[in-house]
Computed example of a mutant assay.
Amino acid sequence: MEEKNKTTIDVIYLLGFQTPNAVTFFLFFVFLQFYCVTICGNLLIITLVSYSKSLHSPMYFFLSQLSVTDILLATNVLPTMLYSILKKTNAIISISYCFTQFFFLAVSETSECLLLTVMSYDRYVAICKPLHYPLLISHRFCWITVIISWSLSFLSGLIYTLEISTLQFCGPNIIDHFFCDLDPLLKLSCSDTTIVQLEAISTSVVFGLIPVIIIIVSYVYIIVTIFKIPSIKGRQKVFSTCSSHLIVVSMFYGTLLFVYLVPRRGQLLNFTKFLSLLYTAVTPLMNPIIYSLRNKDLKQVVDRIVNNFLHLHL
């Protein structure tokens, strides 16, 4: 078996999306709009939750933290991809930048998994145990869970990245992707990656599979409780309080689990890139849109701010 070149690589070429020149500007414009709307939409939610006293509740507090995660995820991936598309060449990045990008990718993905799990528990208590809600989902509980979620995310990402940085990377120094993901990065290594792969499996179970199980169990109880409500309007009203969260969970976990759990041999590489694009670009974009369009409280606050602004300038 032919050995890899033992020269340590310093730079990496991200191939990104190989597209015809005729659609280059169109793709750049589309993804630039994605990024701008993602940042503005999530910043709007953070601002509204901070500004309006009517949104000072656990559900909106967790939503604002989810918006922070979406901003981090989109900012970590999209600017490099936009640069590559605009220059019509492969994005040339240093190996240290690749590690940094992977670190923030791991942090944002892990924190989003944990926050979506906490939000599902919040909806479970609100629907299934409404009388105990103020006691179980207190202001202190919210801050503790958020701090733990972010701390675990940063700790997991740091351990993960430090372990990867100890590997020797010999090349070829080409990643056929638009960001530094785990599998493409490990393919560049000429070291034994068994420990890293075992860590990947263990973290996937702890921060991926277990949260999914908790979310599924929570929604089983929620659905059972909803069906016990005698009136159809009552069911619709209760379900509307968790429908946005359920849509976001389905979008995020659906693409994430498919990309990381389905064997790669049966996947086309471009299809894998497309699925990765869904959870790194589309999901952060859709989260504020879904919550804004399906949430009366957020729409009321926006209407109030717009009306106050118009009255001041008339």
Rank of each mutant, 00 (worst) to 15 (best):
Q267M: 11
S108G: 07
M286K: 03
L14A: 06
T47S: 01
K233C: 10
S231A: 11
P288A: 06
P184F: 07
I144L: 10
Y221F: 15
F271C: 02
S218D: 13
P134Y: 15
R123H: 02
I223G: 05
F141T: 10
L66N: 03
V217G: 05
S64K: 00
S250I: 14
T24D: 09
T255Y: 09
V206Q: 15
G41N: 05
L167W: 08
Y13G: 05
P284K: 05
I289L: 15
I12Y: 02
V220S: 10
F99S: 02
I159Y: 12
I174M: 05
C180N: 06
L152S: 12
V262Q: 05
D70E: 07
E163R: 15
T47H: 01
I93N: 04
F31Q: 03
V302L: 13
V107I: 14
A106W: 08
I201Y: 15
I232W: 13
I223M: 12
T193V: 11
F274C: 05
V249Y: 14
V205P: 08
P230W: 05
I305H: 10
F102S: 06
E2A: 10
T75A: 10
S240H: 09
T8G: 03
S108I: 02
S96I: 02
V301I: 01
L298M: 04
W143K: 12
I92L: 09
L310W: 02
Q18S: 15
I216V: 15
L298T: 00
W143M: 08
L285S: 01
A74V: 05
C40E: 03
Y83R: 10
C128R: 13
V259K: 07
L86F: 08
H245C: 10
V107C: 07
D181K: 04
F252V: 01
C142W: 01
S292Y: 11
F103G: 02
F252L: 14
Y291M: 00
P20L: 02
I144D: 07
F26K: 12
L312D: 09
